[in-house]
């Protein structure tokens, strides 16, 4: 689940234009980045498009990466910017992607569960809706901390928010999530 950093040598090779090395990077980070974006936009097609954009931008800007050991933080930062730009564009064009359209959320929330899942679909749907009910800041910190196991310092580098704010947002996000899923868990 967590983003173990890829070997700095691979990043250095990609930096010097080695496409194969970048392919390795994609294989390593494709899933977490795509999932992180999907958690924000909740639309698989759009998430794939934005993940593509993230990797293209990353490749083109590899020269600007100072610390190869913090590659994933840098990459998530790009993903976050891509999502923000997309949301801004969507607002401009008044074609909201659906963060506040429960119907489309509901449609997306089923379908992704593979057979033999450990959590039942109802609980997955409930968590999904609880995530969507969080505001953007809380959802991002929740996703980066709980799903991607980033440290506060890394999340601060990705989002630009202070650690104090991140802690508060995370605490509140967890409280809101708990409030939504606990009744279901208690009934089990």
């Amino acid at each position: 689940m967590s983003c173990v950093e890829i070997a700095p040598g691979v990043v250095a090779r990609a930096k010097s234009g080695d496409e194969e090395a970048f392919h390795l990077i994609f294989n390593r980070y494709g899933r977490p980045v795509l999932s992180f974006i999907n958690n924000q936009v909740h639309n698989r097609e759009l998430a794939e498009e934005l993940a593509q954009e993230t990797f293209v931008r990353a490749y083109r800007n590899l020269g600007g990466l100072r610390d190869e050991l913090r590659f994933s933080t840098w990459l998530f930062g790009i993903a976050r910017n891509v999502v923000r730009e997309s949301a801004r564009e969507a607002r401009k064009e008044k074609m909201k992607v659906g963060l506040d359209e429960p119907e489309s959320q509901q449609l997306e929330s089923i379908g992704v569960l593979p057979e033999g899942a450990m959590l039942d679909r109802e609980l997955v749907g409930m968590i999904e809706n609880a995530l969507l009910a969080l505001d953007d800041d809380k959802r991002i910190v929740f996703s980066l901390k709980i799903f991607h196991e980033k440290s506060y310092e890394e999340i601060s580098a990705i989002t630009g928010h202070s650690i104090g704010k991140l802690k508060t947002d995370l605490h509140r996000a967890r409280a809101e999530m708990r409030k939504r899923i606990m009744p279901y868990l208690a009934a089990q």
């Binding site: 795509l34 999907n38 593509q52 992704v112 450990m118 968590i127 999904e128 709980i146 799903f147 868990l185």
Partner: peptide
């Protein structure tokens, strides 16, 4: 709670389709 969220992520995380890399490469 943490365990539930972890399972949720593992079950719902999207796996990039092989075409995605091709699309990225082609864009580059």
């Amino acid at each position: 709670e943490h365990e539930i969220f972890t399972q949720y992520y593992e079950q719902t995380a999207l796996e990039p389709a092989p075409e995605m890399w091709e699309a990225i490469r082609s864009r580059l």
